[in-house]
Amino acid sequence: MIQFVLLISRQGKVRLTKWYSPYTQKERAKAIREISSSVLSRGAKLCNIVEWKDKRVVYKRYASLYFCMCIDPSDNELATLETIHHFVEILDRYFGNVCELDLIFNFHKAYFILDEVLMAGELQESSKKSVARVIAAQDQLVESAKEQQGSISNIIKQATQG
């Protein structure tokens, strides 16, 4: 089971966190600090698995972001690497070559996509097309809600002016 997911920039800034196990705020801050320092200081030629406490952190660097997932020692590290890659491919498909700025300005979309891929620390959806359909439907709902909001605002404006 995935304990938590971290997306960290090369400068050590946290861009996304999702916790699937109960950690206090203090424990979370300490975990982020320890993991980011150990992952960022590793050489590019070293393996993508780091021991942390009684867990393992599997990470992969894409452009300027490190995608990290903390797993139980009994879990398959290669399957976790595949899960990371699957998540990145879906982000790429949605944003068109995802970058750090996409995650900064559209963090709500990144969380939504992560929630479609993982549920309770387990892979929920392995089909990229299925996730893309759900995201497109969500985008349509948001757009129709914005249009409806605009028309209601116009009606209120006209009623109060007249």
Rank of each mutant, 00 (worst) to 15 (best):
K26H: 11
S64P: 09
K129E: 14
Y62E: 13
R61L: 12
I104A: 11
P73D: 07
K26E: 12
I155S: 00
I135C: 04
Q158I: 08
Q148I: 11
V131F: 00
E125A: 13
F87C: 02
E122C: 14
K129H: 14
V131Y: 02
E27A: 07
E143P: 08
L16P: 06
V14L: 10
V57S: 02
L16C: 13
V5E: 02
Q140P: 06
Q124N: 11
A63R: 13
E27D: 05
V14W: 02
D75I: 02
V57H: 00
E51S: 05
P73W: 09
E116K: 14
K128N: 07
E27K: 10
N106R: 14
V117M: 04
K18A: 00
E89L: 08
F4A: 03
Q138I: 07
F67R: 03
N48Q: 12
E51C: 04
K18E: 06
E125F: 04
D75G: 01
F95D: 10
A136E: 04
K60A: 00
F4H: 05
S64D: 14
Q25V: 07
V131S: 03
R133N: 09
Y94P: 06
L65R: 03
S153L: 10
E147W: 13
V14Y: 04
V5T: 11
L114A: 15
G96L: 12
T80D: 02
Y20E: 00
Y66E: 08
A29G: 05
L7N: 03
H85C: 07
Q11V: 09
I84E: 01
M1W: 08
Q138A: 12
L65H: 03
A137H: 13
A132N: 12
T83H: 02
I49L: 06
S74D: 04
W19L: 12
V39S: 04
S130G: 05
K30N: 08
N76I: 06
E100A: 09
A120K: 15
R93I: 03
Q124G: 03
V98M: 11
S126D: 11
L7F: 05
E82L: 08
G12I: 05
S144D: 05
L141M: 14
R56M: 00
T24G: 00
W19Y: 13
S36V: 07
R33E: 12
I71R: 05
D139Y: 12
I113N: 04
P73M: 08
K18R: 15
Q161W: 08
E122M: 11
A31T: 13
H86S: 05
P22H: 14
H108V: 11
W52R: 10
E147V: 15
S36C: 06
L7C: 04
F67A: 05
